[in-house]
């Protein structure tokens, strides 16, 4: 008898309410969560799982002596040792400097070439679609393959460039494209520019299509030369597009790894060592993930700096055009 307790009518009513209620209502009532938070919850959970938790874990590991091959070292707290080691290491700052150099040279070259390409294609009246598609070809190759392609092209012994130069009688020596300090960086920049100029080209071309005709015609009526029209009318209109391309590509170049890894692996004698070839080798080959993460966090400031810089430039360019912020 004592085992059977008939439920009270009030409890039964509550149960029926809950049975018929929307599960989201139940969640909000029980946890007293505001509706906006409940709606955002799936995004928060997914972002936490794939971004926030790994980010926090890697931040934590940068304060430990964590080695991939010794999982127990994840709990060996060493404070700021890895950060001190990174910021006092001349090799790290040399790699940092080279990455900034690559970024500055590659971005500006890509911008200039992309702008020229876009201006030329915009003037073409027949076959413009085909040209646009052709311009995008380099973007379709995997960076790893681009690396192999240029490694072969710039090989000093059997490479295409040296053989061509020697056959044409330009030189009778084997130019060490991937060995000489300046030439090796040039070769890497060449490969980067070859593969990504079209990013600028496409975005700037989109900008050119969006330019209203009136200001250009007004400039012509006012007696502006073609250069003046370009400098004072076209270019200001294009600047927001250029800054968007700059922001995207700066993040890309700041994390440059694949092409450099294949072409020179940061060498020889660290002449082409960039941040991510150094960090990749430290983390995955040397297995020193704690130290690699510390270097990674210092490097992230580089990416953040360039992103903020280009977005500020973008905002001011939009303001100048009266597009608001």
């Amino acid at each position: 008898m004592g085992l059977h307790h008939p439920t009270s009518p009030i409890i039964r009513l509550k149960c029926m309410e809950l049975f018929h209620a929307d599960p989201r209502d139940i969640l909000m009532k029980r946890l007293k969560l505001p509706p906006w938070l409940v709606l955002l919850m799936p995004a928060i959970i997914i972002l936490s799982a794939v971004v926030l938790i790994p980010l926090l874990l890697s931040l934590y590991s940068s304060f430990t002596s964590y080695r991939l091959t010794r999982p127990d070292s994840l709990f060996n707290w060493i404070g700021t040792f890895n950060y001190e080691k990174a910021v006092t290491d001349a090799k790290f700052w040399a790699a940092f400097g080279r990455t900034v150099l690559l970024l500055a040279v590659a971005l500006n070259l890509e911008m200039l070439l992309g702008l020229s390409l876009a201006l030329m294609i915009s003037k073409v009246t027949r076959g413009q679609r085909a040209l646009r598609t052709m311009m995008m070809f380099p973007m379709m190759f995997s960076p790893i393959l681009v690396g192999f392609q240029f490694k072969f092209i710039f090989n000093d012994n059997v490479g295409l460039v040296n053989n061509a130069l020697q056959s044409l009688g330009v030189t009778d020596t084997a130019i060490p494209w991937l060995v000489d300090g300046k030439l090796a960086m040039f070769s890497i920049i060449f490969a980067e520019v070859w593969t990504s100029t079209s990013v600028f080209g496409i975005l700037i071309l989109a900008g050119l299509y969006a330019i209203p005709r009136d200001p250009l015609e007004a400039a012509k009526v006012d007696g502006c030369t073609p250069f003046q029209s370009f400098r004072f009318v076209t270019l200001p209109f294009l600047m927001p597009f250029i800054y968007i391309a700059m922001a995207i590509r700066s993040l890309d170049v700041a994390r440059a790894y694949d092409i450099v890894q294949i072409m020179t692996n940061g060498g020889p004698a660290r002449r082409t060592e960039l941040l991510w070839t150094l960090i990749g080798r430290t983390g995955y080959v040397d297995a020193r993930m704690g130290y690699a993460n510390a270097m990674g966090y210092v490097s992230i400031f580089l990416a953040i700096f360039f992103t903020i810089y280009f977005f500020k430039k973008l905002q001011s360019a939009r303001k100048e055009l009266g597009m608001g912020v």
């Binding site: 000093d156 012994n157 020596t173 084997a174 060995v179 020889p268």
Partner: peptide, 16 residues
């Protein structure tokens, strides 16, 4: 030795 030898690994040597 080839000027690029500091950039060579086994495949480059074998093919050379």
């Amino acid at each position: 030795v080839p000027a690029g030898t500091t950039n060579y690994l086994w495949d480059d040597l074998g093919n050379g």
